[in-house]
Amino acid sequence: MREFDRLISEQLKTMDKLLFLQTELERCQAIEKELHDLERKSQLGTLQDEIKQMKQELNDIQNQFEKQTEEVIEYYQNELTTAK
């Protein structure tokens, strides 16, 4: 079960990253709207680049989380099969 605990621990760390990044993305998008409303286009472009980068990172973390989930399920199924 140590391996299972390790997998779950890694998945929880990934989930923390995911939640943090989602919060940051929402914050930046709110700022983006404010800047757009204020028509500060030079600042808007920089923020849009940051948002694009965060969206890519969020996508990468989501993919990592899905892979970890698959590993946890596979490990757990193997443990059940071995236990029988």
Score class of each variant (00 low, 15 high):
Y75S: 04
Q62M: 03
F4E: 09
K84H: 05
E50V: 13
R40L: 06
E26C: 01
T46V: 14
N63D: 08
K52Y: 12
T81L: 05
S42L: 08
L7I: 05
K41C: 03
L38E: 14
L7Y: 02
Y75R: 09
T23A: 14
L7N: 05
F65S: 03
F20K: 09
K13F: 02
E66R: 14
Y75I: 03
T81Q: 08
K52S: 14
N59A: 07
T14Q: 05
H36A: 14
K41H: 15
D49S: 12
I73G: 00
S42G: 01
R6P: 00
D5R: 15
K55Q: 15
L38N: 10
Q77M: 11
F20C: 06
F65Q: 04
E26W: 04
T14F: 01
G45T: 15
Q48L: 07
L12S: 05
E10V: 07
Q43V: 00
E79C: 02
M54N: 04
I73D: 00
I73T: 00
L47I: 07
N59G: 05
T23P: 01
K17T: 02
L18P: 00
E39C: 02
D49F: 12
K67E: 15
R40Y: 05
Q11C: 06
D16T: 13
E57Q: 11
D60Q: 10
D60I: 09
F20H: 09
K52L: 12
T82F: 15
E10H: 11
F20S: 09
N63E: 09
L21R: 03
Q11A: 10
Q43Y: 12
Q64A: 13
L47H: 12
K41W: 14
D16K: 13
M15L: 12
Q22S: 11
D37C: 01
Y76F: 14
F4G: 03
Q48T: 09
L21E: 01
H36I: 00
E74H: 08
Q56K: 12
Q22Y: 02
L44Y: 11
E66H: 13
E39W: 01
K17C: 01
D49K: 15
L21N: 04
